[in-house]
Design a binder for these strands. Structure first.
Lengths: 137, 137
DNA sequence: ACGTCAAGACTACAAATGTAGTTTATGCCA
DNA sequence: TGGCATAAACTACATTTGTAGTCTTGACGT
């Protein structure tokens, strides 16, 4: 898959639907969208689909008289790119302040916090709180 | 302070400088900016400053023949707003997947991870590794 | 067979954004 | 004291984004 193109705010909503339900026709996608948020206008959604195809974020296969859209970029790649650009923009590129902000000021539920602890332990077990450095034996 | 207006990508760079050095004149700010990245054009920066004033993200006090800019919105508020909108856009509003992405796929250094553990412990001590949760009795 | 309805293609248009240039006033140095 | 350097004000313009409308064509039901 190609590297993630720039995906705008509203385009992200479309992409998330396609990632979840690909291959999906415009009608499918629009149905999903309007189910969640009735303010979605079909024409708007179609325009955005066309733009995403232009940007090569989506491709399609003819399916009957309609198109079945498929992602050309992986969700993981796009998420990674968006995260990096977010951290760059808001925290000048350093992750540490972002983590601090998240844990301290954002409304994480206790469950979120527990989950995070579990993720951390899975990621790097056996290092609970290496506060102090000890002399190498 | 007012609630955070929508601050664009490049505007963020200006804002971060002002938050760090406020009150600062345009010349100050531009100097800081170009020091970091010589591709900054002074006129561009001034335009953005004007726009940030329009948006009421910045205010100013005359200082000699120039302006000394000051933030009208707090960095914490803007960071919070940007974080929320980021999570909304990329993760459909749920923090959990974002945390997972960060810990698992983003390049956090071991130091970042340790720091995060410490933050977590500070935030909610006494819950070191609640691996398995039971339904509340 | 024909009309209708829907799918995609093309067009529209205002606001926001990125990037600068032009104009006008003015404080300060020579 | 006169002109230059500079600050802010105003103007410019292409691109991206959000939001839709019109046009063209073909499949499908009656």
């Amino acid at each position: 898959m190609k590297t993630a193109p720039r995906i705008s705010d509203t385009e992200w909503e479309l992409m998330r639907v396609v990632w979840a339900r690909s291959p999906a026709t415009a009608a499918n996608i629009i149905a999903t969208l309007t189910a969640r948020d009735p303010s979605w206008h079909p024409k708007t959604a179609r325009t955005l689909l066309a733009r995403l195809v232009q940007k090569k974020a989506l491709g399609y296969q003819p399916q009957g008289r309609a198109y079945a859209y498929i992602p050309l970029v992986s969700e993981a790649d796009c998420v990674a790119a968006a995260s990096e650009s977010f951290v760059e923009r808001v925290f000048g590129g350093s992750f540490r302040p972002m983590l601090a902000h998240l844990v301290e000021r954002q409304h994480l539920t206790p469950q979120d916090l527990d989950e995070l602890r579990i993720l951390l332990d899975k990621k790097a077990p056996g290092a609970p709180k290496p506060q102090k450095k000890r002399p190498v034996p």
